[in-house]
């Protein structure tokens, strides 16, 4: 796997929505590694997942009538110590990189944590940050 793919599900802001989505994923035997929820004041939002089998997850959700899509995100490795997140965000700011969305993902072995960021040009950002010595998922 060269890139990290995030599953996004369009959802109206209604009780029971996440339950239905996660049930569909559970029934298909999909493991959720990270979740983030984006809502707007307009009554809808997107629920974003990192899962162990993104293709199957997308297929499962579509079959269950959900509006879902896969998009690439950049996973930046975080150091497991105080200031670890600050170290990364500082470099993002220094390089003038704007983040559209971000959340944290702990990898399958429960050992390493990554800051997942949605940016416009992943390759460009990756290039700039690797010059700063940052590592990415998958390593």
């Amino acid at each position: 796997m060269k890139t990290l793919r995030q599953l996004s599900v369009f959802a109206e802001n209604k009780p029971g929505k996440i339950e239905k989505i996660t049930k569909a994923l559970a029934d298909a035997g999909i493991n959720i590694l990270a979740i983030s929820i984006t809502t707007t004041t307009e009554g809808f939002g997107a629920i974003k997942f990192i899962v162990d089998n993104s293709n199957l997850a997308l297929e499962t959700l579509k079959q269950n009538g959900f509006t879902a899509t896969l998009n690439e995100v950049l996973g930046i490795k975080l150091q497991d110590k105080p200031g670890g997140l600050y170290f990364v965000t500082h470099l993002l700011t220094k390089n003038n990189i704007n983040i559209e969305n971000a959340h944290v993902f702990v990898d399958g072995h429960r050992e390493k944590a990554y800051l997942l960021v949605e940016v416009e040009d992943i390759e460009d950002v990756k290039d700039r940050l690797s010059r700063e010595g940052l590592l990415f998922y998958p390593e």
Binding site: S8, F10, T38, E42, A46, T67, T69
Partner: peptide, 14 residues
């Protein structure tokens, strides 16, 4: 919304 318009970006829907 059209199923195919959703690209995961809430900003686009807004």
């Amino acid at each position: 919304i059209d199923k195919n318009m959703f690209d995961g970006k809430v900003e686009h829907i807004v």
